[in-house]
Design a protein around this nucleic acid. Sequence first.
DNA 1: GCAAAAGTGTTCAGCTTACACCCATGG
DNA 2: CCATGGGTGTAAGCTGAACACTTTTGC
Lengths: 227, 227
Amino acid sequence: MNDRADIQLTVDVVIFTVRAESLRVLLVRRGVPPFEGAWAIPGGFVLENEPLAEAARRELAEETGASDVYLEQLYTFGAPERDPRGRVVTVAYFALVPPDRLDIRAGSDAAEAAWFDVARVPELAFDHAEVLDAALRRLRGKVGYSEVGFELLPERFTLSELQAVFETILGRPLDKRNFRRKVKLLEVLVEHDEWERQGASRPARLYSFARDRFETLEERETLFPFW
Amino acid sequence: MNDRADIQLTVDVVIFTVRAESLRVLLVRRGVPPFEGAWAIPGGFVLENEPLAEAARRELAEETGASDVYLEQLYTFGAPERDPRGRVVTVAYFALVPPDRLDIRAGSDAAEAAWFDVARVPELAFDHAEVLDAALRRLRGKVGYSEVGFELLPERFTLSELQAVFETILGRPLDKRNFRRKVKLLEVLVEHDEWERQGASRPARLYSFARDRFETLEERETLFPFW
DNA sequence: GCAAAAGTGTTCAGCTTACACCCATGG
DNA sequence: CCATGGGTGTAAGCTGAACACTTTTGC
């Protein structure tokens, strides 16, 4: 009468960053069967007495050295046949890592890891194609009414960089003037008297993201209009 | 070196229905410790070789007799101390059951179960207050751009009934004329030559929900505007 | 002085909102 | 005939989209 399944629980973390105007995801190459040699989303088993989000942060730190970045639970995948070794249910998370938070050294000690443009991802192990797809849909769905667009940038950034992130996530160009007007209207950016110069062009003003102001915005639910 | 946690996996299902213009949730009274005598969200262990959604549907059918209703994975709760008996991670789902799909007999054989107005829910066992809160936020958040508002109604319904469901979920009144115009603009309702008469008033036309038309709408992502 | 990217307003269309009266029926 | 809920259109304000030129710098 006790047919509780003997289940192993893992967390997988879809780790995104932005580089050279492309959205990238971190994948690791599997060194052991099953799917030996295939690319996979980094993940691992949940430890005793470890909260799920903490397991995800541990995974994230092991692979990237990054901590204190945006992390969100995505979905739980539990098809019985998703892992040929047995019943393994995985709680998938996704993380947004600004380029300046990446620790180059991290992850290099363990398995091979590499960043892939999300438009050019190889075949993935397990049901990880589905996991990645869910993460991308979530990210794209939320960019319009949440902070995720801001969480991929370094501490200081230009409005053009911000716009490039939005365009990268959405996969389409945005109008520069409209974009700037709307962002400023949100009142979540702090304007600095610092300027980024790059090559032979006019320097761009640097901004930073005021996370606290965004949170008060959310409560007003101005961003969730009734259709 | 193998510190994989010995974890029990359950599914909990937040079951909503609408009755008398109030949004209700099904709760069961616990007959055994821990939290003996407290009200809880129905749930149970995942079986060997059972997909998570199937476990949720099984739970749902046991409690309500309903099948083929709207079911969506909500969130996975895994705080180590959430169940005093040990490490129990739960994958929470929520279900929307139209009143005509409820089987009165179901659930009566087992534990005591009852419907509660979501605004008048008693103290709940475990972290179920948090689970219910997440379900309500998800439901309210999605009513404006998804089909959830349509999934709580019987096969045939009037526009006033539909509006009442939206108002119940959102917790605020909507303008009748605007509501009707927008719903008709969506083109997801089938108009029938049947009329509901109730008491001393003009009969109301009956409609049904064309789920397939809604799905093609979703792909057009007209409903997900960029801010 | 020219190439390159930064920065800046206005107009128009479409959508959202607010709002009040007549209609069909049962009792 | 009256009480009850069903059903319908229009005007005003607001929001989103389209669009082009000037500025600052490095070379």
